[in-house]
Design a protein around this nucleic acid. Structure first.
Lengths: 110, 110
DNA sequence: ATATATACATAATTTTCTTATGTATAAGAA
DNA sequence: TTCTTATACATAAGAAAATTATGTATATAT
């Protein structure tokens, strides 16, 4: 059952990592990819995603390119050079966090 | 270097898990325990901790017992029965979240 | 004497979500 | 052909959960 809660702070990491793997993606595609990869466990809401994309763009981590497909708008995002570096940092941060949490929650294995 | 950021949402899990292992603890003790277990990686701030303890108490997950040691106040917290059950849930949630994040970030191992 | 450690607390602010809306086109079902 | 679902964007209001900045008070170490 059900829809892991998204721990606040991890959305940017998810976005950056997906863009690191897929070169360019548009918002809706990201929501679908996350759903697929997590077998429905995690659903990125639009209210969280779009502002996050705008912010990453404003910070210079993403570039945008608008396209029209089937008469519908798409905004393709891709990592800038800075974005690629930041992706590495974010992934390290996540790995550290997971390690840290395991030290707390499962101290016998640490 | 540095000081894992506390992903928002994980503090309650940490508190509950520590109380599950140590029977009763007071606030300051929790901050020190977390610092020790994570080798300084994670620092629980008082501004986050105390309100969290008060909330868990208000929700009936913790009981408090005030003590005076060396003329200084201590508030010992311990899990209620409900708190013990909730601890199990929170730990499962955390494990799910970690699994989900690994599916996203390291899809080859998933 | 002074700084650091112990021990609590709260208020203001910030970050980062969720929920609720809104617009618009395309495709599929009744 | 109408109605729903899917595709595709967006933003505003509100909630949750931190951080940062204070504040009080006692004990211990320098």
């Amino acid at each position: 059952m059900s829809n892991s809660k998204l721990y606040k702070g991890s959305l940017n990491t998810i976005i950056l990592k997906l863009l690191n793997e897929h070169d360019k993606m548009y918002g809706y595609e990201i929501t679908q990819k996350v759903k697929a990869l997590t077998k429905g466990e995690l659903k990125i809401t639009e209210g969280a995603l779009y502002p996050a994309l705008h912010k990453l763009e404003a910070e210079g981590l993403l570039d945008v390119e608008v396209a029209k497909v089937d008469n519908r708008l798409r905004k393709y995002y891709k990592l800038t050079e800075t974005g690629t570096k930041e992706t590495v940092n974010k992934l390290e941060e996540l790995a550290d966090y997971i390690k840290t949490m395991q030290a707390l929650v499962n101290p016998k294995l640490a």
